[in-house]
Design a binder for these strands. Structure first.
Length: 341
DNA sequence: ACCCTGCCAGGCGACTATAA
DNA sequence: TTATAGTCGCCTGGCAGGGT
């Protein structure tokens, strides 16, 4: 059974019926005794046939952490190793970047990643400290280099990265190369690099007062509110800082709605509108998260059965801020990628 | 003058990896 | 989750060379 994202729930507070509580080191779910009195839209859960995927696993086996093998063979091998507590020989790959057994030097914990990579590549402490192909930003050839045991960052060769000239922008490959070989001496501003012309031109487009907004959202499987679907984002908090022309920065506003009964998204948009419509200063976001959330809220305002009376104003306000709007939010993450190292 | 063929570059879509 | 960029394969169109 899977939550069906196309289904709107008919009641509010469904999530309140199943409270998760800590019980020592374990968690457990307390089911509300009134659960049976609540009419739960059973369609919220969809029966999804997975035969097709089971067939794939049966015929092609498992592919995990560099291993490709039939499931029964793996089950046998891994359970035997687990039972006898014997170590499985490591296979290194790009997926090691997501290794969950890394530890921070000095925290006293064992470092499974280091153990594996020491065994696989004989790396010294010094080499670990330099960094590896896993540390290179958005590097898609790491697998290839790991296969030929070229893993320490300074072992990466010129032709391992096709450096594309980004013109006035720092291209992805130029960034990678800077990370690998360092900032060219004549362009080093003291440990950082700036695309001066581009940066100044972009800043020239901005308008004081600058608004910096940051959203906190959650997407949960069991909707909090009637009319919502599984995994619809709930925007419950934002913070708002303003930077004035004289350089003074202030935390001008914050929205936080924690009342579990109230659907926060529309109140959220309302509060944001009240704070931003005081002037026409540039609004900044980091990456496109704020854009995505605002689009989502506009969608919800349009599709909800009982929209607030100011819905048209809220929608117009959102449209002006999102990509394509006349006051579209400026993505500082993108600028930092284009113009800063 | 026209056509065919092979080569190559660029465009495009599908897929995939990555980041936030 | 969404957005974006890299990669790869495929297609197309331009071009050159050679044949009819």
């Amino acid at each position: 059974m899977m939550p069906d994202k196309s289904v709107q729930v008919s009641v509010s507070g469904l999530n309140q019926l199943f409270k998760i509580v800590r019980d020592g080191k374990r968690s457990k779910v307390i089911t509300n005794p009134h659960v049976h009195e609540t009419t739960i839209d059973k369609n919220l859960l969809a029966l999804v046939p997975v035969d097709e995927f089971v067939d794939i696993v049966r015929s092609e086996g498992m592919q995990h952490a560099g291993i490709s093998e039939k499931l029964p063979v793996l089950a046998e091998r891994w359970s035997a190793a687990y039972k006898a507590d014997t170590k499985i020989e490591p296979i290194a790959g790009g997926f090691c970047g997501k290794c969950e057994f890394k530890s921070i030097p000095g925290d006293g914990l064992q470092n499974g990643f280091r153990e594996c990579w020491t065994e696989a590549f004989n790396l010294t402490d010094d080499e670990f400290a330099k960094g590896t192909v896993l540390d290179v930003y958005n590097f898609r050839r790491k697998d290839r280099l790991i296969k030929i045991s070229r893993v320490v960052i300074d072992q990466i060769q010129d032709d391992d990265v096709d450096v594309v000239d980004g013109g006035e922008r720092l291209s992805l490959s130029e960034r990678q190369w800077m990370q690998i070989r360092g900032i060219p001496k004549d362009e080093d501003l003291g440990g950082h690099w700036v695309a001066d012309t581009l940066m100044r031109r972009e800043i020239g487009e901005w308008k004081f007062p600058y608004h910096f907004i940051d959203f906190e959202t959650s997407t949960v499987a069991i909707p909090f509110h009637a009319g919502m679907r599984p995994y619809e984002p709930v925007a419950f908090q934002f913070s708002h800082h303003v930077m004035h022309e004289d350089g003074q920065v202030e935390h001008v506003g914050e929205f936080l709605l924690t009342d579990p009964v109230v659907f926060p998204n529309f109140k959220f948009a309302e509060a944001l509108k009240a704070e931003l419509e005081q002037d026409d200063g540039t609004v900044f976001m980091w990456s496109h998260h704020e854009n995505t959330i605002l689009n989502k809220i506009a969608e919800q305002l349009e599709s909800t059965a009982n929209p607030p009376c100011n819905a048209p104003h809220l929608i117009a306000f959102i449209r002006s801020l999102v990509s394509g709007g006349d006051r579209q939010m400026y993505d500082l993450c993108k600028l930092s990628k284009d113009a800063y190292f």
